[in-house]
Amino acid sequence: MIAPIVEAHAVHKYFGTHHVLKGIDLAVAERELVFVIGPSGSGKSTLLRCLNRLEEPSSGSIMVDGIDLLDRRTDINHARQRIGMVFQSFNLYPHMTALGNVTLALRKVAGKRRAEADAIAQAALARVGLADRAGHYPNQLSGGQQQRVAIARAIALEPRVMLFDEPTSALDPELVGGVLAVMRELRESGMTMVVVSHEMGFARAAADRVLFMDAGLVVEQGPPEQIFAAPREERTRAFIGQIQRH
């Protein structure tokens, strides 16, 4: 078997005395889509943010695409180009157009010239269905469009893995579909993805594996059919029951 793209081992995270991650092991294979679910405060977002070192784990090891993220000698800015991240609140740069948002890292980090960066960014925007919005500022775009620009910003750097932190939670219901469609297309193109989200329909249709986290631990994991229809753990069952009630 090929080595996994993401390999986290015994990851602990404390915020002060608060023990948020209590020894997480996670391996994500190439082209795999892993879904992470769990109640708020279970540590799922913290885990995701450890995977590109936006949060510094207190202990453990994290390898992404063969790079030891926690090694002091690792150039984290170089490593982060290979790890795309999409946030709940989009976090587009309000003073730049959609194109400017996508080209910034291409030019500053990947060292592309303006013309080349523009071409790559245009292609990325076309891929998320926003080729005609390149000159728009974030406040001229809907939430769903903003999130798709944010996805374009990440994929333009050709990451090896994409992390999604509740990408549809801040969206009006009618805008969710467009973002999920882009994520589905990414998945079909073979992108490795780790998704923290409660979009159960999407998880059922697209996920290879679902992780259920509670209180800083992975309680249960398995294919979506198992987790959603026949969970083995009592806590998983209770959680699935709660979210399916509405």
């Binding site: 590109n52 936006l54 800015n77 170089h78 490593a79 982060r80 180009q81 790890i83 795309g84 991240m85 946030f87 609140s89 976090n91 587009l92 740069y93 910034l104 890292a105 500053k108 980090v109 990947a110 944010a150 910003r153 990440a154 750097l157």
Partner: peptide, 15 residues
């Protein structure tokens, strides 16, 4: 300036 702006930028590899 919101923290998310820092995080988005740093997550794409900017120093």
């Amino acid at each position: 300036v919101p923290r998310g702006q820092w995080e988005a930028s740093r997550s794409t590899g900017l120093t």
